[in-house]
Design a protein around this nucleic acid. Structure first.
Lengths: 140, 140
DNA sequence: GTCCTTGCAAAGCGTTTGCACAGAA
DNA sequence: TTCTGTGCAAACGCTTTGCAAGGAC
Protein backbone atom coordinates (compact mmCIF):
# COMPACT_ATOMS: atom_id res chain seq x y z
CA UNK A 1 0.00 0.00 0.00
CA UNK A 2 2.70 2.45 1.02
CA UNK A 3 4.61 1.35 -2.05
CA UNK A 4 1.87 2.88 -4.15
CA UNK A 5 2.15 6.16 -2.30
CA UNK A 6 5.91 6.03 -2.54
CA UNK A 7 5.62 5.85 -6.28
CA UNK A 8 3.23 8.79 -6.41
CA UNK A 9 5.79 10.90 -4.59
CA UNK A 10 8.60 9.66 -6.82
CA UNK A 11 6.62 10.40 -9.95
CA UNK A 12 6.14 13.95 -8.75
CA UNK A 13 9.88 14.27 -8.17
CA UNK A 14 9.70 14.10 -4.38
CA UNK A 15 12.15 11.81 -2.63
CA UNK A 16 10.05 9.60 -0.37
CA UNK A 17 11.65 10.02 3.05
CA UNK A 18 9.95 8.32 5.96
CA UNK A 19 8.35 11.52 7.20
CA UNK A 20 7.12 12.56 3.77
CA UNK A 21 5.70 9.15 3.10
CA UNK A 22 4.06 9.00 6.53
CA UNK A 23 2.41 12.38 6.12
CA UNK A 24 1.22 11.60 2.62
CA UNK A 25 -0.04 8.18 3.65
CA UNK A 26 -1.90 9.65 6.62
CA UNK A 27 -3.85 12.03 4.40
CA UNK A 28 -4.48 9.37 1.77
CA UNK A 29 -5.84 6.88 4.30
CA UNK A 30 -7.75 9.31 6.51
CA UNK A 31 -8.74 12.15 4.19
CA UNK A 32 -9.92 15.46 5.57
CA UNK A 33 -8.06 18.64 6.42
CA UNK A 34 -5.60 18.75 9.26
CA UNK A 35 -3.34 21.18 11.08
CA UNK A 36 0.41 20.85 11.52
CA UNK A 37 -0.13 20.24 15.20
CA UNK A 38 -2.65 17.48 14.58
CA UNK A 39 -0.43 15.64 12.12
CA UNK A 40 2.52 16.03 14.47
CA UNK A 41 0.56 14.40 17.28
CA UNK A 42 -0.72 11.64 15.04
CA UNK A 43 2.74 10.69 13.81
CA UNK A 44 5.01 11.37 16.77
CA UNK A 45 4.39 7.95 18.32
CA UNK A 46 5.44 6.18 15.13
CA UNK A 47 8.32 8.60 14.49
CA UNK A 48 9.70 9.35 17.96
CA UNK A 49 12.26 11.98 16.93
CA UNK A 50 9.75 13.88 14.83
CA UNK A 51 9.68 17.68 15.07
CA UNK A 52 6.98 20.14 14.10
CA UNK A 53 9.47 21.88 11.84
CA UNK A 54 9.59 18.76 9.72
CA UNK A 55 5.81 18.69 9.45
CA UNK A 56 5.92 22.31 8.30
CA UNK A 57 8.63 21.42 5.79
CA UNK A 58 6.88 18.37 4.43
CA UNK A 59 3.48 20.01 4.11
CA UNK A 60 4.98 23.06 2.40
CA UNK A 61 6.77 20.76 0.00
CA UNK A 62 3.60 18.84 -0.79
CA UNK A 63 1.80 22.12 -1.41
CA UNK A 64 4.64 23.33 -3.62
CA UNK A 65 4.40 20.17 -5.69
CA UNK A 66 0.63 20.64 -5.87
CA UNK A 67 -0.24 17.39 -4.17
CA UNK A 68 -1.71 19.28 -1.22
CA UNK A 69 -3.68 22.48 -0.81
CA UNK A 70 -3.69 25.02 1.98
CA UNK A 71 -7.01 25.67 3.67
CA UNK A 72 -7.19 28.94 5.58
CA UNK A 73 -10.44 29.54 7.40
CA UNK A 74 -10.90 32.57 9.63
CA UNK A 75 -8.13 32.92 12.15
CA UNK A 76 -8.01 29.15 12.60
CA UNK A 77 -4.71 27.34 12.38
CA UNK A 78 -3.72 26.61 8.80
CA UNK A 79 -5.05 23.31 7.57
CA UNK A 80 -3.90 21.12 4.69
CA UNK A 81 -5.79 18.76 2.41
CA UNK A 82 -5.07 16.53 -0.54
CA UNK A 83 -5.81 18.13 -3.90
CA UNK A 84 -8.94 16.40 -5.19
CA UNK A 85 -12.34 17.07 -6.73
CA UNK A 86 -14.01 20.45 -6.75
CA UNK A 87 -15.63 21.03 -3.41
CA UNK A 88 -16.30 23.81 -0.98
CA UNK A 89 -16.00 24.06 2.77
CA UNK A 90 -18.57 24.56 5.46
CA UNK A 91 -17.61 25.82 8.88
CA UNK A 92 -20.03 25.30 11.73
CA UNK A 93 -20.09 28.34 14.01
CA UNK A 94 -21.29 26.18 16.92
CA UNK A 95 -18.81 23.29 16.99
CA UNK A 96 -16.22 25.02 14.76
CA UNK A 97 -15.81 21.87 12.73
CA UNK A 98 -14.93 22.12 9.05
CA UNK A 99 -16.82 20.01 6.51
CA UNK A 100 -16.37 19.30 2.81
CA UNK A 101 -19.41 20.12 0.68
CA UNK A 102 -19.70 18.81 -2.88
CA UNK A 103 -20.08 21.92 -5.00
CA UNK A 104 -19.35 22.93 -8.56
CA UNK A 105 -17.16 25.91 -9.23
CA UNK A 106 -18.72 29.26 -9.93
CA UNK A 107 -18.43 30.48 -13.50
CA UNK A 108 -18.46 34.22 -13.92
CA UNK A 109 -19.39 35.85 -17.19
CA UNK A 110 -16.96 37.99 -19.10
CA UNK A 111 -18.13 41.42 -17.94
CA UNK A 112 -17.39 40.41 -14.39
CA UNK A 113 -14.00 38.96 -15.26
CA UNK A 114 -12.85 42.18 -16.83
CA UNK A 115 -9.23 41.25 -17.44
CA UNK A 116 -8.80 39.05 -14.35
CA UNK A 117 -7.29 35.63 -14.93
CA UNK A 118 -8.87 33.23 -12.46
CA UNK A 119 -6.69 30.27 -11.59
CA UNK A 120 -8.38 29.01 -8.47
CA UNK A 121 -11.46 29.54 -6.37
CA UNK A 122 -12.42 28.76 -2.81
CA UNK A 123 -15.94 28.85 -1.50
CA UNK A 124 -16.64 28.87 2.20
CA UNK A 125 -20.03 28.55 3.81
CA UNK A 126 -20.64 29.38 7.44
CA UNK A 127 -23.62 28.36 9.51
CA UNK A 128 -24.77 25.42 11.60
CA UNK A 129 -24.01 21.80 10.77
CA UNK A 130 -26.65 19.03 10.90
CA UNK A 131 -25.43 17.68 14.24
CA UNK A 132 -25.59 21.08 15.95
CA UNK A 133 -28.93 21.82 14.30
CA UNK A 134 -30.35 18.68 15.89
CA UNK A 135 -28.97 19.57 19.31
CA UNK A 136 -30.64 22.98 19.10
CA UNK A 137 -33.96 21.36 18.20
CA UNK A 138 -33.70 18.99 21.18
CA UNK A 139 -33.24 21.95 23.52
CA UNK A 140 -36.42 23.66 22.35
CA UNK B 1 -21.16 64.37 7.39
CA UNK B 2 -19.69 62.77 10.49
CA UNK B 3 -22.95 63.56 12.22
CA UNK B 4 -24.62 61.09 9.91
CA UNK B 5 -22.10 58.40 10.80
CA UNK B 6 -22.42 59.27 14.47
CA UNK B 7 -26.11 58.55 14.24
CA UNK B 8 -25.55 55.23 12.51
CA UNK B 9 -23.37 54.14 15.41
CA UNK B 10 -25.86 55.42 17.97
CA UNK B 11 -28.72 53.62 16.27
CA UNK B 12 -26.77 50.40 16.50
CA UNK B 13 -26.19 51.00 20.20
CA UNK B 14 -22.52 51.92 19.89
CA UNK B 15 -21.36 55.00 21.76
CA UNK B 16 -19.60 57.15 19.17
CA UNK B 17 -16.22 57.83 20.75
CA UNK B 18 -13.69 59.73 18.65
CA UNK B 19 -11.78 56.61 17.72
CA UNK B 20 -14.88 54.63 16.83
CA UNK B 21 -16.24 57.44 14.74
CA UNK B 22 -12.89 58.00 13.02
CA UNK B 23 -12.53 54.34 12.12
CA UNK B 24 -16.08 54.07 10.90
CA UNK B 25 -15.78 57.30 8.91
CA UNK B 26 -12.53 56.16 7.33
CA UNK B 27 -14.14 53.01 5.97
CA UNK B 28 -17.28 54.85 4.86
CA UNK B 29 -15.31 57.49 2.96
CA UNK B 30 -12.59 55.26 1.54
CA UNK B 31 -14.21 51.85 1.22
CA UNK B 32 -12.12 48.75 0.71
CA UNK B 33 -10.63 46.28 3.17
CA UNK B 34 -7.89 47.27 5.52
CA UNK B 35 -5.65 45.82 8.19
CA UNK B 36 -5.38 47.00 11.79
CA UNK B 37 -1.90 48.27 11.05
CA UNK B 38 -3.05 50.25 8.02
CA UNK B 39 -5.91 51.93 9.88
CA UNK B 40 -3.59 52.67 12.79
CA UNK B 41 -1.15 54.43 10.47
CA UNK B 42 -3.91 56.32 8.69
CA UNK B 43 -5.38 57.67 11.92
CA UNK B 44 -2.40 58.12 14.21
CA UNK B 45 -1.62 61.60 12.83
CA UNK B 46 -5.14 62.82 13.58
CA UNK B 47 -5.29 60.97 16.92
CA UNK B 48 -1.77 61.27 18.33
CA UNK B 49 -2.25 59.08 21.40
CA UNK B 50 -3.84 56.29 19.39
CA UNK B 51 -2.79 52.71 20.09
CA UNK B 52 -3.16 49.58 17.99
CA UNK B 53 -5.03 47.94 20.84
CA UNK B 54 -7.79 50.50 20.37
CA UNK B 55 -8.00 49.74 16.68
CA UNK B 56 -8.32 46.05 17.55
CA UNK B 57 -11.02 46.92 20.08
CA UNK B 58 -12.98 49.18 17.77
CA UNK B 59 -12.86 46.83 14.79
CA UNK B 60 -13.90 43.87 16.94
CA UNK B 61 -16.79 45.92 18.27
CA UNK B 62 -17.91 46.93 14.79
CA UNK B 63 -17.77 43.30 13.72
CA UNK B 64 -19.73 42.26 16.80
CA UNK B 65 -22.43 44.79 15.97
CA UNK B 66 -22.42 43.53 12.38
CA UNK B 67 -21.43 46.81 10.80
CA UNK B 68 -18.11 45.33 9.69
CA UNK B 69 -16.99 41.98 8.41
CA UNK B 70 -13.72 40.14 8.85
CA UNK B 71 -11.84 39.21 5.69
CA UNK B 72 -9.28 36.46 6.13
CA UNK B 73 -7.30 35.59 3.04
CA UNK B 74 -4.49 33.06 3.16
CA UNK B 75 -2.03 33.84 5.91
CA UNK B 76 -2.36 37.56 5.21
CA UNK B 77 -3.05 39.93 8.09
CA UNK B 78 -6.71 40.05 8.98
CA UNK B 79 -8.59 42.69 7.04
CA UNK B 80 -11.90 44.39 7.78
CA UNK B 81 -14.58 45.79 5.50
CA UNK B 82 -17.98 47.42 5.82
CA UNK B 83 -20.89 45.01 5.48
CA UNK B 84 -22.42 45.77 2.10
CA UNK B 85 -23.67 44.15 -1.09
CA UNK B 86 -22.93 40.58 -2.07
CA UNK B 87 -19.51 40.41 -3.60
CA UNK B 88 -16.53 38.12 -3.72
CA UNK B 89 -12.81 38.72 -3.44
CA UNK B 90 -10.01 38.28 -5.91
CA UNK B 91 -6.44 37.98 -4.75
CA UNK B 92 -3.68 38.58 -7.28
CA UNK B 93 -0.84 36.14 -6.77
CA UNK B 94 1.60 38.56 -8.43
CA UNK B 95 1.01 41.84 -6.58
CA UNK B 96 -0.90 40.26 -3.67
CA UNK B 97 -3.54 42.93 -3.87
CA UNK B 98 -7.12 42.11 -2.90
CA UNK B 99 -9.99 43.22 -5.14
CA UNK B 100 -13.76 43.20 -4.78
CA UNK B 101 -15.59 41.36 -7.55
CA UNK B 102 -19.33 41.81 -8.04
CA UNK B 103 -20.76 38.32 -7.76
CA UNK B 104 -24.07 36.78 -6.79
CA UNK B 105 -24.16 34.24 -4.02
CA UNK B 106 -24.14 30.57 -4.86
CA UNK B 107 -27.38 28.73 -4.26
CA UNK B 108 -27.04 25.06 -3.52
CA UNK B 109 -29.89 22.63 -4.03
CA UNK B 110 -31.36 20.70 -1.16
CA UNK B 111 -29.52 17.42 -1.61
CA UNK B 112 -26.26 19.25 -1.20
CA UNK B 113 -27.46 21.17 1.86
CA UNK B 114 -28.40 18.00 3.66
CA UNK B 115 -29.27 19.52 7.02
CA UNK B 116 -26.72 22.33 6.94
CA UNK B 117 -28.02 25.81 7.70
CA UNK B 118 -26.06 28.28 5.64
CA UNK B 119 -25.86 31.74 7.16
CA UNK B 120 -23.02 33.24 5.19
CA UNK B 121 -20.77 32.52 2.25
CA UNK B 122 -17.42 33.80 1.10
CA UNK B 123 -16.01 33.27 -2.34
CA UNK B 124 -12.37 33.87 -3.09
CA UNK B 125 -10.75 33.83 -6.49
CA UNK B 126 -7.02 33.65 -6.97
CA UNK B 127 -5.13 34.45 -10.14
CA UNK B 128 -3.67 37.46 -11.90
CA UNK B 129 -5.25 40.93 -11.88
CA UNK B 130 -5.61 43.05 -15.05
CA UNK B 131 -2.66 45.29 -14.19
CA UNK B 132 -0.29 42.37 -13.67
CA UNK B 133 -1.66 40.63 -16.74
CA UNK B 134 -0.71 43.67 -18.81
CA UNK B 135 2.78 43.80 -17.32
CA UNK B 136 3.32 40.17 -18.23
CA UNK B 137 2.22 40.87 -21.81
CA UNK B 138 4.63 43.79 -22.07
CA UNK B 139 7.51 41.55 -21.03
CA UNK B 140 6.79 39.02 -23.74
C1' DG C 1 -18.89 57.60 42.03
C1' DT C 2 -19.49 54.25 38.56
C1' DC C 3 -18.96 52.46 34.24
C1' DC C 4 -16.93 52.45 29.85
C1' DT C 5 -12.89 53.53 26.96
C1' DT C 6 -8.13 53.89 26.06
C1' DG C 7 -3.16 52.65 25.85
C1' DC C 8 0.95 50.59 27.39
C1' DA C 9 3.53 46.49 28.18
C1' DA C 10 3.71 41.79 28.34
C1' DA C 11 2.18 37.42 27.08
C1' DG C 12 0.48 34.10 23.70
C1' DC C 13 0.59 31.40 19.75
C1' DG C 14 1.28 29.76 15.13
C1' DT C 15 4.90 29.98 11.93
C1' DT C 16 9.53 30.81 10.07
C1' DT C 17 14.48 30.93 10.28
C1' DG C 18 19.38 29.74 11.40
C1' DC C 19 22.25 26.40 12.04
C1' DA C 20 24.31 22.09 13.10
C1' DC C 21 23.87 17.20 12.87
C1' DA C 22 22.32 12.97 10.45
C1' DG C 23 21.50 10.33 6.53
C1' DA C 24 21.17 9.16 1.62
C1' DA C 25 23.28 9.03 -2.96
C1' DT D 1 32.18 13.54 -0.18
C1' DT D 2 28.38 16.10 -1.39
C1' DC D 3 23.74 17.14 -1.20
C1' DT D 4 19.37 16.64 1.05
C1' DG D 5 16.56 16.00 5.14
C1' DT D 6 15.80 16.64 10.02
C1' DG D 7 15.29 18.85 14.57
C1' DC D 8 16.29 22.05 18.15
C1' DA D 9 16.11 26.70 19.73
C1' DA D 10 15.41 31.24 18.86
C1' DA D 11 13.23 34.81 16.39
C1' DC D 12 9.19 36.80 14.31
C1' DG D 13 4.74 38.98 13.61
C1' DC D 14 0.03 39.37 14.49
C1' DT D 15 -3.22 39.28 18.12
C1' DT D 16 -4.86 39.05 22.86
C1' DT D 17 -4.68 40.01 27.72
C1' DG D 18 -3.94 42.43 32.21
C1' DC D 19 -4.11 46.34 34.29
C1' DA D 20 -3.97 51.11 35.40
C1' DA D 21 -5.15 55.75 33.96
C1' DG D 22 -8.44 58.77 31.66
C1' DG D 23 -12.99 60.26 30.37
C1' DA D 24 -18.10 60.18 29.99
C1' DC D 25 -22.45 60.10 32.31
Amino acid sequence: MNVKYKDILKEKGIRPSIIRLSVYTYFKENGGHHTVDFIYNELKDVLPTLSKTSIYNVLSLLVEYQLFKVVNIDQMETQYEIVSDEHSHFKCRVCNELFDIPCQHVHLNNEELNGYTIENQDLLFTGVCPKCNNKEKENE
